[in-house]
């Protein structure tokens, strides 16, 4: 009998990003949508820049953060 396939638990890789000027660690594979959820922000009220390029809202769910990313997450506030 062949051995049963073995599943080895590998701890998820961590990636480091710079988020709004602060170093943060996330699990590898974290998407922009997941990031916003973590921040408690609805995707329709936020805009995201990744490495100086705007991430279109329609792609929040598919764009995954990568190690070394520089991210800006902004929202609208009162102003003149």
């Amino acid at each position: 009998m062949p051995d049963a396939p073995r599943f080895v638990m590998v701890p998820p890789m961590a990636i480091r990003v710079r988020l709004n000027g602060v170093e943060r660690t996330f699990e590898d594979g974290t998407t922009v949508a997941a990031l916003l959820e973590r921040l408690g922000r609805a995707p329709q009220v936020a805009a995201v820049e990744r490495n100086r390029e705007v991430v279109p809202r329609a792609r929040f769910a598919e764009v995954a953060l990568e190690d070394g990313d520089v991210l800006e997450v902004v929202q609208l506030v009162g102003g003149g």
Partner: peptide, 20 residues
Amino acid sequence: VTVAVRRVNLEEAGTGKCLL
């Protein structure tokens, strides 16, 4: 009406109230 664009505060989760 004019509005401004600012970084979201990482220390506080969304308060539920937003400008829009």
